[in-house]
Nucleic acid binder design. Structure first.
Length: 493
RNA sequence: GUCCCCUUCGUCUAGUGGCCCAGGACACUGGGUUUUCAUCCCAGCAACAGGGGUUCGACUCCCCUAGGGGACGCCA
């Protein structure tokens, strides 16, 4: 049997570094064993899917060179590779599971569940479904379901004993069944949850090994139960450590740049990003720190995976990146810098923006400095303004970041629309409103047109620059954040 | 709170019972090369969380404590 691995991201936002991290090990393991690496899109949450996200995932994984052997865009023998297109498959399997008693219909209301959880936590117990609907007679449940009564389908979990399993990274792990929730497998909208869909798909797609984040380790018993109910062999699991922020917490948007595209737009090379990621929680036999993907694929072994969560250190990544830059031939470096700065439509866009504002060639370049390079560090003085207090500017920036987070199509016009609307809601004259944004983005108040700049800079760089500007203005305390949250809600409702 | 996982320099890590009064790398500090800067070279700083066992011998094995992280959703 051939080794098959997969990456199963959900298209709910900017492709995360953690996805690249998992992809790296999955792909390496499959390919060094002559197997296949599969990309599957986990789009079972109808409320969170974002249209642009799927293509962003394709784009960024291809940029990294982590391409796949089967996937939604290229097909394969186990398609379709988008879960929203596999609903009939899940339905059929669920009928089987229901018939065997491995799952049951649950008609409990959200209110009852909320109250139940509240009480459990208060009583110091693990919060989980209490099994009320387990007592509903299956025939009656079928009847109620047939009449269209809203309900979900849950996994039946043993009440006693423990689930033992082997994690390829940590060894034996034991979790008492009493801690495992009767997970919802089919939601009331008829869509499966991750737990059900991905287990069924992993089996049907012949997945043999799974490298995934440690955050899944507690879900393992549920998945195991599903495999057992169907009588399927289970893939071997390796739970990778979670990438961390400098304060050791799970790497998050709030404290770090987590989007792959951010690193790409900052001008990191794919070679160094991948190389660096491969040294997180894994090491080369001779402790070599700089190595190519070919070398990695040759030497990778799960034995050298460590369970300890590594802090993602952008300083060390930068050092590595410098090594790679110096190693490139002049020709190659030239081509890659050019592509990074001016690839696609970027050169045309920049030229058209700059020509109207220039009289000599030598004032062309200073105008685009903040687009092609990082902007200068900011201080409070940079935000002195005759109409806006520093605290006003800070609030504007915070709200701008929130508004921008909701913009789906990252282009000049929708960005304009979003911020223009926000200025109206905040009752600040647009020109004044824009001032702190100009400064945050470019480091000065007079620049190329703002919305073109935002578009060219792309989402991740913009978000980070605004955040760092907020820091320059003293940052936001927890108390302040609470107040702003409230104000934001009244604003957008 | 409950359960699970983790614990070597600030950070990434080597180390699978004696080779370790713990090695490498980033960062930092000092020095050298260089018209400046960077690169490069050399040197320095700096860690086995604590306590019990097991053993002739523990960074390595076991237990406890402490600390950190994760999970506890009709999100993945």
């Amino acid at each position: 049997m051939s080794v098959r691995t997969r990456l199963a991201p959900s298209p709910t936002g900017d492709p995360h570094l953690g996805s690249a991290y998992a992809a790296l090990f999955n792909r390496a393991f499959a390919h060094q064993n002559g197997g296949e690496f599969i990309l599957r899109i986990e789009d079972t949450d109808q409320t969170r899917n974002r249209a642009e996200s799927e293509s962003a995932i394709f784009d960024v994984l291809r940029w990294l060179g982590l391409d796949w052997d089967e996937g939604p865009d290229i097909g394969g023998e186990c398609g379709p590779y988008r879960q929203s297109e596999r609903l009939a498959i899940y339905k059929e399997h669920m009928e089987q599971l229901l018939a065997s008693g491995g799952a049951f219909r649950c008609f409990c209301t959200k209110e009852r569940l909320d109250e139940m959880r509240r009480q459990q936590i208060q009583a110091g117990k693990t919060s989980k479904y209490d099994g009320k609907c387990l007592t509903v007679d299956p025939a009656e449940a079928e009847e109620r379901a047939a009449r269209g009564e809203p309900h979900v389908i849950r996994l039946r979990v043993p009440e006693e004993g423990e689930c033992r399993f082997v994690d390829g990274v940590r060894g034996d792990v034991t979790i008492p069944w009493s801690q495992v929730d009767m997970q919802v497998l089919i939601k009331s909208d008829g869509f499966p949850t991750y737990h059900f869909a991905s287990t069924v798909d992993d089996h049907l797609m012949g997945i043999t090994h799974i490298f995934r984040g440690e955050e899944w380790i507690n879900s393992f018993p549920k998945h195991q139960l599903i495999y057992q109910n169907f009588g399927w062999d289970m893939p071997k699991h390796y739970h990778l450590p979670l990438l961390r922020n400098p304060d050791q917490s799970k790497m998050s948007k709030r404290k770090n740049a987590t989007s792959i595209n951010y690193y790409r737009r900052c001008g990191f090379l794919r070679e160094s990003l991948l190389n660096y990621l491969a040294t997180m929680g894994w090491s080369m036999p001779e402790e070599r720190e700089k190595f190519s993907m070919d070398e990695f694929y040759a030497d990778f072994t799960p034995n050298r995976l460590s369970p300890r969560g590594p802090v993602f250190d952008i300083e060390k990544l930068s050092w590595l990146n410098g090594l790679y830059i110096r190693e490139l031939s002049s020709e190659e470096l030239k081509a890659r810098v050019f592509d990074w700065a001016f690839g696609g439509e970027r050169l045309d866009r920049l030229v058209s923006l700059v020509r109207e504002r220039s009289e000599r060639f030598d004032d062309l370049f200073p105008k685009v400095d903040y687009i092609l390079g990082d902007r200068v560090d900011l201080t409070e003085q940079d935000f002195e303004h005759k109409k806006l207090e520093l605290s006003d500017s800070k609030k504007v920036l915070e709200f701008v970041n929130r508004a921008l987070g909701e913009v789906e199509q990252w282009n000049r016009d929708s960005l304009y629309e979003s911020l223009n609307q926000l200025a109206g809601l905040m009752n600040v004259k647009f020109k004044d409103f824009l001032f702190p944004v100009f400064v945050a983005i470019s480091g000065r108040s007079v620049t190329l047109p703002l919305f073109d700049s935002l578009e060219l800079l792309e989402r991740d760089i913009v978000t980070i620059r605004i955040r760092s500007a907020i820091e320059a203005l003293g940052g936001i305390s927890n108390k302040e954040r609470k107040r702003l949250d409230k104000e934001w809600r009244t604003l957008v409702d």
